[in-house]
Design a protein around this nucleic acid. Structure first.
Length: 143
DNA sequence: CGCGGAAAAT
DNA sequence: ATTTTCCGCG
């Protein structure tokens, strides 16, 4: 694994030699935005554990387009990519709630870290149960 | 909007 | 393999 410091579920990893594996994955990007408070007007955790709302679909698509160098990206196409995550059990749709999806954090091996009592970043809360494989710490972004 | 098939692109 | 693109359907 190229990112050995975190115990993500299998779906967090991608084959290293496949053409589609060179660039950032959409769900990584989504988490990246969710991590940053400055984007809370654009996308934010809301509702159940792992659930998030895309408050500004056009803006999320624009940012994703910038990241992937796809100037014509839009929410229609971005959402199609999100729908491909359904079968892969990465995401599912929160029915009845517009622009609302939910990460399937349930497949994660629970570790329970008392030290991270999760008042910290809203981003961290869905990850409090992730345990580092090598350093035995729970963390993110090398922190 | 949200869905998923189909085909192309990377 | 993971989108990106396009699109008909409900």
């Amino acid at each position: 694994r190229s990112h050995p410091c975190f115990a993500f579920p299998d779906w967090a990893y991608k084959p290293e030699s496949s053409p589609g594996s060179r660039q950032i994955q959409l769900w990584h990007f989504i988490l990246e935005l969710l991590q940053k408070e400055e984007y809370q007007g654009v996308i934010a955790w809301q509702g159940d554990y792992g659930e998030f709302v895309i408050k500004d679909p056009d803006e999320v698509a624009r940012l994703w387009g910038i990241r992937k160098c796809k100037p014509h990206m839009n929410y229609d196409k971005l959402s199609r990519a999100l729908r491909y995550y359904y079968n892969k059990r990465i995401l599912h749709k929160t029915k009845g709630k517009r622009f609302t999806y939910k990460f399937n954090f349930s497949k994660v091996v629970l570790v329970n870290y008392p030290l991270l009592d999760m008042a910290s970043s809203p981003f961290l809360s869905p990850f409090k149960n992730f345990k580092c494989l090598q350093c035995e710490k729970v963390m993110w972004n090398g922190g």
